[in-house]
């Protein structure tokens, strides 16, 4: 179990001394930039959502857009999103069930068929991650019940060829704001336990 990692705080770089006789200037020459770095750092910390989020590499090049265009809905595969706490992933059998008929010869599909034959799960990489250290227990069906669209947090995955995070779902301030706007509970225990 990893201990919570601290957020990066800004730190000032020290400079070499100015000329000796008027050494007083040194303090102020640094004070400006230091204050600037500090404020900038605060602003960066405060604007969590704008940070760059990594797109994980998937074992199979799954294309969301193609599947949505073919008429599938999000919850067709991620069933738990409406019915359970976890959105969940489709089983290999479910994938293989369709693909036995649809483009079975596609090289990426072949990987699915192989996994199905070997009875091995496909180890999809998590795209929208709340780190364990946050100790958050997100409940999908409670949000679905409240009418929150998938794309509110996950972005328009329907038009993505590679699923990528668009928002930092681990940004607590964003969660709290939304909860307050929608008069959902802002009790810490609603998520953290």
């Amino acid at each position: 179990m990893a201990v919570t990692r601290p957020e990066g705080l800004p730190s000032g770089r020290s400079r070499s001394l100015g000329d000796g006789e008027d050494g007083g200037r040194f303090g102020c020459r640094c004070a400006g930039p230091l204050a600037g770095i500090w404020i900038l750092g605060l602003a960066l910390v405060a604007c969590g959502p704008t940070q760059n989020l990594p797109t994980p590499e998937q074992p199979i090049a799954y294309d969301h857009q193609v599947h949505i265009e073919a008429g599938l809905e999000c919850v067709r595969c991620h069933r738990g999103a409406e019915e359970g706490v976890h959105a969940g992933m489709p089983s290999v059998q479910a994938c293989a069930g369709c693909h036995r008929r649809e483009i079975p010869d596609h090289p990426e599909v072949q990987k699915v068929m192989l996994a199905n034959e070997n009875r091995e799960p496909i180890r999809w990489a998590k795209v929208n991650v709340i780190p364990d250290s946050a100790m958050v227990h997100f409940n999908h069906r409670a949000h679905a019940r409240a009418g929150i669209e998938c794309l509110t947090c996950h972005g328009d995955v329907a038009s993505m060829t590679v699923a990528e995070p668009v928002r930092n779902v681990a940004d607590m301030g964003w969660c709290v704001e939304c909860h307050r706007e929608n008069e959902a509970s802002d009790d810490c225990l609603a998520c953290h336990r």
């Binding site: 006789e21 008027d22 007083g24 200037r25 303090g27 102020c28 020459r29």
Partner: peptide, 15 residues
């Protein structure tokens, strides 16, 4: 005149 700039302007801080 001990703040940067001040001493130089007023001539006071000069050695």
């Amino acid at each position: 005149g001990l703040l940067p700039g001040r001493g130089i302007r007023s001539g006071r801080g000069r050695a």
